[in-house]
Amino acid sequence: MFENKHNWKGYLYLAPALILILIFIIYPLFNTFLTSFKENYQFMTGEYDGFSIQHYMDVFKSSKFKVAFKNTMILTIISVPVSIVIALLISVGLNSIKRLQGFLQTIFFLPYVTNVIAIGLVFQFMFNHNYGIINTVIGWFGIGPVHWMDAYASYGEAMAVIIIYSIWSSLPFKIMVFLSGLQTIDKQYYQAAQIDATPKWRVFLRITVPLLSPMIMYITITSFMGAFKTYEHVLSLFGDGGTAGDPGNLKTMVWYIYEALDSSKKGSVAVASASAVVLFIVIMIFTAIQMYINKKRVHY
């Protein structure tokens, strides 16, 4: 039929979603950006004394922010690539078996539907210094016992637990996406590769990974975004956000933003806004870099 460029009915149907998005996402986004420049901003009255970049200076000078930034970076840069590689290997494994596939898929998917706080509790048991299963198992190989999460835990040990938790809890979604991607790859590619006597690792690197690259790119970008926003993982493992020896040393950037918001100090919302904008810019830079790299490597 004839194309109607002013189909107002279409916009009407979109309106409920658009209005909600405008109120709860677009407006806060711009407002945060604006607020971050307001001096002596009073949240309750909305009063402020003009614009400056003072809050950004404060954020960059804050030692707490530096710690949060470092923690977030360490966590992200280790957990995202490692979890992607593990998820990829598990998906390829799951895809290649027939028996128990459904059962194992369910098992790998469980963390996705389990409560974060509950998992935190279970991890506290597993990583317990005295009777945790982790120390028991590594003890068989003559390692440990490691403190992990107790009062004597070091920064490195605590960070290791957080990273392991992040990797494990992010696997299900990645596996689900990779598995559905793998199932769309034509089996004939693998038969062709088999007839051409292609070694298994070469099939994986030269056929599976390239054909899965759109999914890998999607997962990489969303995982980096997610990891930069980590907060609840640390909270559920270390409620006070730090090891006993050095309180607050495990807090992440979102934690920092949250705390800035929470303090009753005058202008604190503006400081939180500034730090949120900083996080936004960091994520944006990372995403841009990935888009640039992936442009050359992703095959649609």
Binding site: Q188, D196, A197, P210
Partner: peptide
């Protein structure tokens, strides 16, 4: 892989991410 056969599939099964040259070279690289 040890029978020494060449098989042309119905939908060709050319690796979409490789150039024609790479496709032809693939079995040789193996």
């Amino acid at each position: 892989e040890k029978r020494g056969i060449g098989l042309v599939f119905q939908n060709y099964a050319l690796y979409p991410h490789m150039s024609v040259e790479k496709n032809i070279m693939f079995p040789l690289e193996n």
